[in-house]
Computed example of a mutant assay.
Amino acid sequence: MEWLIWIHVLSAILGIGPTYFGHILLRKKQQREQLLQSLVLFKLLNYFPKIGGSIAVVSGVALVASSGWKFSDLWILISLVLYVLIQVVAVGMLGPVLGQLNQVLSVGDEKASDPETTANKTALLTKANQLYNTASILGIVLIILMIVKPM
C-alpha cells in the first residue's frame, strides 16, 4: 500500500504542479505573437494534468478501496467533487475560451490591430484568467484537503 501512496503523491505533484505555470503564460500584457506562443506552451502543459491527474484519481480510488476509508467519508466526497469541478472549469469552460482566443489571435496582421479584435482579445483573456484562477483555487483547496485529511 505504501507504493500506492507514492504513486498517488508523485502523480499529483507531476500532474498538478506544472499547471500553475499557466498563470505566467496567460499574462495580459503580451504582444500577439507572444500570446500565441504562450497558448502553444499552455496546450503542451495541459498534458501533465490530463495524465498525472488521471493517475492520481485512479490511485486515490485504489487507496480508498484498499484502506479503512469509505467513499462516504466527507473529505473523500469533497475531494472527488473538487476534482470534477476543476475538470469542468479547466476542460469544459477554459478550453473553449482559449480556442476562441486562439482564433481571434490568428487573424491576419492587418486585422490584429483593429479595435474590435483587441477588445475581443482582452475580453477573452480576462475570462480565461478568471476561469484559470478559479481552477487554481479549487486545486489549492484540494491539495490542502489531501494534506489535512483525517488520519
Score class of each variant (00 low, 15 high):
58 V>W: 13
27 R>Y: 12
97 V>F: 08
58 V>S: 12
98 L>W: 02
19 T>K: 06
9 V>R: 09
113 S>Q: 13
108 G>Q: 15
11 S>T: 04
42 F>K: 15
55 I>S: 04
62 A>G: 08
8 H>Y: 02
39 L>R: 12
73 D>I: 15
66 S>C: 08
138 L>Q: 02
14 L>C: 01
98 L>F: 04
84 V>E: 08
90 A>K: 03
144 I>W: 04
114 D>G: 11
110 E>Y: 02
32 R>H: 05
132 Y>H: 10
24 I>R: 14
52 G>C: 01
59 S>A: 12
100 Q>M: 10
59 S>R: 00
77 L>P: 10
78 I>P: 03
40 V>M: 14
47 Y>A: 03
8 H>S: 11
111 K>P: 04
119 A>K: 14
142 L>C: 06
93 M>W: 05
143 I>R: 07
140 I>F: 02
12 A>G: 09
53 G>T: 00
86 I>Q: 01
76 I>F: 01
138 L>F: 03
98 L>G: 00
42 F>G: 12
132 Y>P: 05
134 T>Q: 12
77 L>E: 11
50 K>W: 04
121 K>S: 09
111 K>C: 06
115 P>K: 14
92 G>H: 03
28 K>H: 09
35 L>V: 10
127 K>N: 07
21 F>M: 08
133 N>C: 08
130 Q>W: 13
64 V>L: 07
120 N>V: 12
76 I>Q: 00
22 G>F: 00
74 L>R: 07
36 L>A: 04
19 T>N: 06
74 L>Y: 03
137 I>Q: 11
9 V>F: 00
106 S>N: 01
65 A>S: 14
17 G>K: 07
101 L>H: 02
74 L>K: 05
118 T>H: 12
36 L>W: 02
94 L>S: 01
51 I>D: 07
111 K>H: 13
9 V>L: 06
118 T>F: 11
135 A>R: 08
122 T>M: 10
17 G>Q: 01
126 T>C: 15
107 V>I: 15
67 S>D: 07
104 V>R: 11
40 V>P: 09
88 V>T: 09
85 L>D: 05
31 Q>C: 10
92 G>N: 01
119 A>W: 00
78 I>G: 03
29 K>G: 07
92 G>W: 06
84 V>K: 13
44 L>S: 04
127 K>I: 07
49 P>T: 14
30 Q>M: 11
131 L>W: 03
93 M>N: 07
13 I>F: 11
71 F>T: 06
50 K>C: 02
95 G>S: 14
44 L>E: 00
97 V>C: 09
122 T>S: 13
